[in-house]
């Protein structure tokens, strides 16, 4: 099983024309969309309190005080929701040797020359970057966020610590929003990706083109299962 590090629960191939490949279970998809909605709401409410020109966004949340109240609670929801995603996806996001090669040929990635890239598993180096940077940023955001959640936690830290926390929170949030833009753009740019998170499956061609190693593993597993059913 050592080669199947990146095959996740529920991943399987369905032969046919075209081939379809199950990529995300219903649980993973619901988990993802809860995280996604939380992140968008957090970005909107956070930006409203970050820059005066964006203060009007508090209108979406029922005004300034309600924005101030609701933002940290959505943060708590996002933290636990993302933690669920982390438990599901961390193993398949471990760094592999081909990821370095893939990253070194980032020009070929951006210009669409996939034939020059190494075969990669369920996630390529770009997706792994999104996964690990979001994981790290969310830990930073929840920690600094609790420090500046004055209504409940103001007595536990000094004003100087809160000043650092609010600055780091803002910088981490900017990084997270930027990573999110990369994530969303990649999903739009690479056609056939979004259905993985809506219906849960991709076409065989998509898997062949972008995650051939993963596809080979799944096919190998399926044929192995067929040949030795009594195992």
């Amino acid at each position: 099983m050592s080669t199947d590090y990146d095959v996740e629960k529920g991943d399987s191939v369905h032969p046919g024309k075209p081939v379809t490949v199950d990529r995300y279970t219903a649980g993973a998809r619901v988990n993802h969309w809860i995280t996604a909605i939380s992140l968008v709401l957090l970005a909107l409410s956070g930006l409203a309190l970050f820059h005066p020109r964006l203060f009007f966004l508090t209108g979406l949340f029922g005004g300034g005080p309600l924005t101030r109240i609701i933002h940290p609670w959505i943060g708590v929801l996002l933290f636990f929701s993302f933690f669920g995603l982390f438990l599901r996806f961390w193993k398949a996001n471990l760094w592999k040797r081909e990821d370095g090669t893939w990253l070194a040929r980032i020009r070929d990635v951006l210009t669409g020359h996939e034939e020059r890239l190494p075969e990669v598993g369920k996630y390529n180096a770009g997706q792994k970057f999104v996964f690990w940077s979001m994981s790290a940023l969310i830990i930073v955001l929840i920690t600094t966020g609790l420090i500046i959640w004055d209504q409940y936690f103001s007595v536990f830290t000094t004003i100087e610590q809160k000043r650092w926390a609010v600055l780091i929170h803002a910088i981490a949030a900017i990084c997270a929003i930027s990573v999110w833009i990369i994530h969303v753009y990649a999903a739009i740019w690479v056609r056939g990706t979004i259905r993985a998170m809506t219906r849960g499956s991709v076409t065989g061609g998509w898997a062949w083109r972008h995650h051939r190693k993963w596809l080979r593993e799944l096919v190998g597993k399926a044929s192995k299962g067929k040949s030795t059913p009594a195992e």
């Binding site: 191939v13 081939v19 076409t203 061609g205 083109r209």
Partner: peptide
């Protein structure tokens, strides 16, 4: 970045 017809055929051959 679109999946080509050849990609689909390659996957079908593989399976």
């Amino acid at each position: 970045n679109r999946v080509s017809e050849e990609d689909e055929e390659a996957a079908e051959k593989l399976t």
